[in-house]
Simulated scan of single mutants.
Amino acid sequence: MDDEKMPYGVLEIAGFDVSSLLWEQDEIEQAVRELALYPQFHEHFKEAFGLINYATSFWLEELSYADHAGAVIATMYRLRDSIDEHASYANPSSLPDVIRQFHQVDRNAQDSHLAATYALVRATEGLTVLANWLFETEVSIYDLDEELVLHLHATAPKHYAALVQEERLKDRDVEIEARESFRECLGDAQRALMLAELCQQIESIDVSKKSFNVSGFLCKPLNDAFSAKAFQRASSAGKANSKPNSEKQLSAVQTFARVSQSAKRHIVANPKISASELVKALVETEGIASPPTVRKYLKKGNFLPR
């Protein structure tokens, strides 16, 4: 396997198996455009792809990408959860140094490259959660009458989209979660791109002069930017905790417990069970919740990825 290729099954966006975040952006965008409800979320996807395209532009050297760009991007995507965890405890301006702590990442990559790649990964995560929610909503209607749905898809796309829209409205909580996750990911991507821009400016300056304080140059604008994120998270947490015994929260706790217990049981019975098989077992066999909800709680319980 080439260093810049991701293992099969690592990432699927709107039904398309992604093997390279650098070279398959056109294919990913085409897969997203084919979603029945794409027109309703056109601006969301436009924003995500705009951030992704800008992030990849940091790797351009004249008219082509740097030779090691694909490998760095693939590696950082695979390590995204660990990198994000470490970054959450670090000073915002130290993101490139945090990333370099992982020996798998090419340490010769410039700070601007690493910050931009982090932005690319976060924007891709946001794109993925929104696109896959729409894709799974669309797929679920085939359980009604597959032949009829296929016929509508081929001959009456407006009626097909209306059917998908009806399915979408059945679980608004899942939509809210997808939208919130999308917005958080893109917010992280925007801040990381600001860091990438600052790093790029610094890289073009002769920093060997003792009078130039790189750390001081970066710290204040980045800390100001990220403090908004911290405030937003704290505010959201306060609202969520205002009614700790609400029916919705109790239901979420119970669902998480059911997912965790069932996941442990299936993994003990079959230690080699894949992520897709585990989700399918909990959704179709046990009927615990919808696929997006099951995946969310499996990830929360550290059962995914596997």
Rank of each mutant, 00 (worst) to 15 (best):
R183M: 08
A281R: 12
E27A: 12
V149A: 09
H42T: 11
D143Y: 04
A289K: 03
A87S: 07
Y54V: 06
L298R: 05
I267G: 03
A192L: 04
L148R: 13
P7G: 03
S262K: 07
L193W: 07
D173C: 00
T128H: 03
L304P: 00
A14H: 05
W23G: 06
H44Y: 14
H153P: 00
P244M: 09
L298K: 07
H68R: 03
T117I: 08
R122E: 03
Q104Y: 11
K229G: 02
K299R: 14
L150K: 15
P221H: 12
R107E: 05
D3K: 09
N53A: 08
V174G: 00
F49R: 10
A281W: 06
S242M: 12
L198T: 07
I13P: 08
S94K: 11
E284S: 14
S57Q: 06
E47F: 13
S227P: 00
Q254M: 14
T117N: 02
A87Q: 02
F303S: 01
H266I: 09
T285E: 15
A252S: 15
R191E: 05
R122W: 03
L222N: 02
Y54D: 03
A240G: 04
A289Y: 04
L63C: 03
S204P: 00
K46N: 11
Q165D: 11
R122F: 01
A234L: 12
W59H: 12
C219N: 13
F16T: 04
N245M: 13
E125H: 07
D26F: 15
N270T: 14
E197S: 13
L95Y: 04
S211W: 12
D2K: 13
Q232Y: 07
L222V: 05
H266C: 06
S112C: 08
E166W: 10
E247I: 09
R122D: 02
A115R: 04
T124V: 09
Y77T: 00
D3F: 05
S82R: 15
A115H: 04
G287A: 03
V129M: 00
N91R: 11
S140Y: 02
W59L: 07
M194A: 14
V253Q: 12
Q249I: 15
E62D: 15
R258M: 11
K170F: 11
I205H: 06
F45M: 11
K170P: 04
V259S: 02
R295F: 03
R233I: 11
S112I: 07
K210H: 05
A234F: 10
V294K: 05
L250R: 15
D106W: 09
